[in-house]
Design a protein around this nucleic acid. Structure first.
Lengths: 152, 152
DNA sequence: GTGCAACTTCAAGCCGACTTGAAGTCAAGC
DNA sequence: GCTTGACTTCAAGTCGGCTTGAAGTTGCAC
């Protein structure tokens, strides 16, 4: 085991952050993290990078693309440890996003539940259209959940 | 506008289902839908296919891959209209899945909220690890949300 | 001073879910 | 019967987020 030094090699960072080294190089390519170099050209990461990587992974769980993460990281200081205000701002955005996605899933679940009640799949009169549901995860999504008639 | 006949062309189905024709051909390739052919080789879809496509799109919103949709469709009759029992079974599975994802998002949100309280990004003593959170959306995900110390 | 794991770069590959394009055929209204 | 838009197949391309492989270099322990 290497001494717990000020700087981490890419392998150490990878192990401790739970990501592959290739992912870290990729993040660097995208400008999400950066590294100092040894005389021989190997990467050495300050410990703060560990937080930065954790941040990236957390953001992905929230559903952000790396592009969006990049934007969010733009608001956090690269050198110093982020303070409460920095963090407050970013996490508020994420929490909004999470809440939206939860609401979306709940709507979908409720539609499914009421389908069970009405035997919807067999009825073209089922009212379970979702015209207002613009925030679908992938593409435009189904315009209505079930039933033969699209909302006119 | 074409007469409202027993069968739909791929273009009609695409418009009414809210998906591209290319997507429909792709679904056919995967065995999710099937079509009769005219003498000239063009696809003609029975109206039930409309439901089938709606089903696929709904399943995708739930977060299923097309592979999983294929499995779910295996339980529904291709020829006849699915009955309440068919539907009950499938929707129950989906609802479980939605509930799981909601729970996951709620946990994440709560961790974020408490981070705001403790100024977590700057503290290595923050307790917000998530060792039990195996159901991450992409890959293994971050082992812990923030803080320098991985769960030992 | 040597052995070997860990590192380096760069290009290419992979996955899912499609989309796009080329080159050609069909169906339906006039 | 001709025109025109909708259709056909097949191969290749796209996108995000990486991974894999080849070919070579570095760093550290012994």
């Amino acid at each position: 085991m290497p001494p717990l030094s000020q700087h981490l090699t890419i392998g150490e960072l990878a192990r401790r952050a739970g990501v592959a080294t290739s992912a870290l190089r990729y993040y660097e390519q995208l400008g999400l993290i950066s590294a100092e170099r040894t005389a021989g050209g190997q990467r050495r990461y300050p410990r703060a990078t560990l937080r930065r990587v954790a941040f990236v992974r957390a953001a992905q769980q929230v559903g952000l693309s790396l592009d969006e993460v990049s934007a969010a990281l733009g608001r956090l200081p690269e050198g110093r440890t982020p303070n409460k205000a920095d963090w407050n701002h970013v996490s508020a955005t994420w929490i909004r996003r999470i809440d939206e996605r939860i609401a979306e899933l709940e709507r979908l679940r409720d539609r499914l539940s009421s389908c069970v009640g009405c035997g919807c799949l067999s009825l073209r009169t089922c009212g379970l259209s979702n015209p207002g549901d613009t925030a679908a995860t992938r593409g435009s999504g189904a315009r209505w959940l079930l039933g033969d008639t699209p909302p006119s």
